[in-house]
């Protein structure tokens, strides 16, 4: 059995693409692991691993940035749909 432990655990709060996140990293053996958690709802958004803390965090943050940016785009699309619907309703009212 190759027993390891998580060591050098660090955690900090930050913002990525406007979303509040918590970035956690630690070392297990000779590998560093990092997670980016969405503070609300508290779930992991992205993970990374690498030979150094910086490398692990860079991977996790890059993936998180990509994913969170996509969420913003969906939000923008939904807003556009709502605006179009409101405009159509206005036109309908004027037509009547």
């Amino acid at each position: 059995m190759s027993t390891l432990r998580a060591e050098e655990l660090q955690s900090r709060e930050d913002k990525i693409e406007g979303w509040p996140v918590r970035i956690t990293s630690y070392r297990v053996g000779n590998q560093y692991r990092s997670t980016v958690d969405n503070i609300d709802p508290g779930a992991t958004v992205a993970r990374g691993a690498g030979p150094s803390r910086e490398a692990a965090e860079l991977e996790a943050i890059s993936t998180a940035r990509e994913r969170l940016a996509k969420v913003k785009r969906l939000e923008a699309s939904l807003s556009a749909v709502h605006e179009s619907m409101a405009a159509m309703q206005d036109l309908f009212k004027k037509g009547n």
């Binding site: 969405n38 609300d40 779930a43 998180a64 969170l68 969420v71 939000e75 939904l78």
Partner: peptide, 17 residues
């Protein structure tokens, strides 16, 4: 039990899911 932005309809799913 979802996050407020999912509940209100601001987003469809949490990031990365």
């Amino acid at each position: 039990v979802r996050s407020p932005p999912e509940f209100t309809g601001e987003i469809y799913a949490p990031p990365g899911l």
